[in-house]
Simulated assay, not measured.
Amino acid sequence: MNDSELRTICDYLKPKVFEENAKVVEVGQPLNAMLYIIAGSMQAYLPIRDAREAHPLTSFKTLKKGMFVGEQLLEWAAKTKTFDDQPISFKTVRCCKKVEAFALTVDDLKTLVLSRKIFLMKSKGDV
């Protein structure tokens, strides 16, 4: 991604506020937006599958200022041909504290790609 594309994406970012304990995304659900955290913190819970365990294990990761949630949407938007195959979340993310973030929605990504404002290197037929 070049600087021009990055600036274009920044024009589409929208401020979003999540209250403490709010669930941002749940494992198995479609990712609707990519978030860039500017204040507060979130906890990401990643289920770990182990056939030997009766109960699933969970890995935890704290997400803080300067970190992303849903960044895989950029790779998906660059590669998808139809936008019908929206990726799902492999983790559950919940706010530890009130969180302020900038959001880039799936619809905005679709608009940017289809208008050829980002990911200009390849046409959708070449991907």
Rank of each mutant, 00 (worst) to 15 (best):
M1Q: 08
M1A: 13
N2I: 03
S4D: 09
S4Q: 10
E5C: 07
L6I: 15
R7W: 09
C10S: 15
D11T: 14
Y12D: 10
L13K: 03
L13F: 13
K14S: 14
K14F: 05
P15E: 10
P15C: 03
V17L: 12
F18L: 08
F18T: 03
E19P: 00
N21V: 07
N21D: 15
K23R: 14
V24C: 04
V25S: 06
E26L: 08
G28H: 06
Q29V: 06
Q29P: 00
L31A: 11
A33W: 06
A33Y: 10
M34F: 03
M34L: 15
L35E: 03
Y36S: 08
I38H: 05
A39D: 15
G40Y: 04
G40S: 08
M42P: 00
M42C: 15
M42A: 12
Y45C: 04
L46G: 00
P47D: 07
P47Y: 03
R49W: 07
R49F: 11
D50V: 02
D50G: 00
R52T: 11
E53S: 09
E53M: 12
H55D: 08
S59G: 07
K61E: 15
K61N: 14
T62W: 02
L63P: 01
K64M: 11
K64F: 01
K65I: 09
G66R: 10
M67D: 15
L74Q: 01
L74N: 03
L74A: 03
L74E: 03
W76I: 08
A77W: 01
A78S: 14
K79Q: 15
T80K: 11
K81N: 14
T82H: 12
T82W: 06
T82K: 11
Q86K: 12
Q86T: 12
I88L: 09
S89Q: 01
F90N: 10
K91V: 11
K91S: 12
T92C: 05
T92V: 04
V93M: 02
K97Q: 15
F102I: 00
L104F: 07
T105L: 06
D107P: 00
L112H: 07
S115T: 14
S115Q: 13
S115C: 04
R116L: 02
R116I: 02
R116N: 12
K117E: 11
K117Q: 14
F119P: 00
F119W: 03
F119V: 01
K122F: 10
S123K: 12
G125W: 10
G125V: 13
